[in-house]
Write a protein that binds this DNA or RNA. Sequence first.
DNA 1: GTCTATACATAGATAGAC
DNA 2: GTCTATCTATGTATAGAC
Lengths: 228, 228
Amino acid sequence: MIYSEFKKIVNISKEDISGQILEQNRDSIKVKKEKKVIENLIKIFDATLEICSRKSFQAMSIRDLAAHSGLSRGALYSYFTNKEELLNLIQMQGRQIANRVLTEQISCAGGAAEKLRIAIKTHIYLSEAMHNWFYFTYIEARNLSKPEQKKAIESELQTEAIFVDIITTGVKEKVFVSDNVILTASVIKAMLQDWYLKRWKYTQRKVSVDEYADFVIKVTEASLLRKK
Amino acid sequence: MIYSEFKKIVNISKEDISGQILEQNRDSIKVKKEKKVIENLIKIFDATLEICSRKSFQAMSIRDLAAHSGLSRGALYSYFTNKEELLNLIQMQGRQIANRVLTEQISCAGGAAEKLRIAIKTHIYLSEAMHNWFYFTYIEARNLSKPEQKKAIESELQTEAIFVDIITTGVKEKVFVSDNVILTASVIKAMLQDWYLKRWKYTQRKVSVDEYADFVIKVTEASLLRKK
DNA sequence: GTCTATACATAGATAGAC
DNA sequence: GTCTATCTATGTATAGAC
């Protein structure tokens, strides 16, 4: 799998899942024509994420969003009942895309060592293809409502659990050595997150996605594959 | 060095540096009595960081801050000219404390391998002792003015440079093996930051500061000390 | 379905009393 | 030095025209 191919898969999921968002939020979304809704939801989400890569969600006014999305302030309120709900919709959409792509990709790997490499690479590719969303979700997490916060934490722990599973299997199969599987998974996640949290740094230093992914794999394997 | 000792050093620096903050901001701070200023600045900073561990700086109103700090809204404006300046003061104070303690601690180490262990442990201890500040600075970074943002980035890169230096020395002395010193330093930083960014997770799992620090040291050494 | 105009709330900042 | 009262700006959300 090369990155450009990967990006296409993500974009297809994006339109696809905007349809699901409509289904799941029929009551808040006042516009009836499905085609119109999907088209405008994508406009609204993209504009929001673009603005929020520079300032916080709270600092983004509805006036800002209207200007950037091309819709008027009034029209925007046909797609969500209030600003907080917009936040929730974006969370929902992103999580659904990320989950789908991640599980799809990982399912087709063989042994634990290969699974680990693919999981790392896929996660980094994913956060590259959906960079604004990953950054947004991370940074806005504490501004969510309590129930939404809970969902975000669950999603975070679920991703971590994927790594815990892979490593545990690897230890059983005696390809990995680890005396603390959970901490190992935690620091892998920390390294994965750095890619989207400090993107300015890596861009500036011309570190490519693949270079970073390969490096994380190397560090991880140095720890897990080592002989005592 | 054990954590409880370390914490005392940080608290002494805190009062100490509030005095410096006053010197450096004589024109914005309208209150004249030095003792009063230091006392109230600490109240204001602590209250701000406490509130901002739960909501964003923008979401914190001056009314919130007045209630939590014990000062009235009017009185607060005797210590800063506007809300943004309060943000800058807190950045300034935190950076000065962190820099002082970090350089002090690292200076007294021997070889590269020991220096690396001490640098990792000190950074994690520091972010534990000043947790609210580290979290705040990270999460509010993009809401700073351009010049303040520049300072934050400099400070970030400076910390990274400490690790780059140590590793480079270690490679020269042939105690470390690394084909990409900068990426190695980057992922070490990522692991260090996870301690204060995901503190809820580690608290919940009852992972202690020392346990985490030792684990990060182990992962790092597995990568750097490995035989080809 | 989308627009413009506007009501209403919140929050930063200041003035003047104590 | 600190307080309360208040001015003013900004931003969310809605109503009603097109």
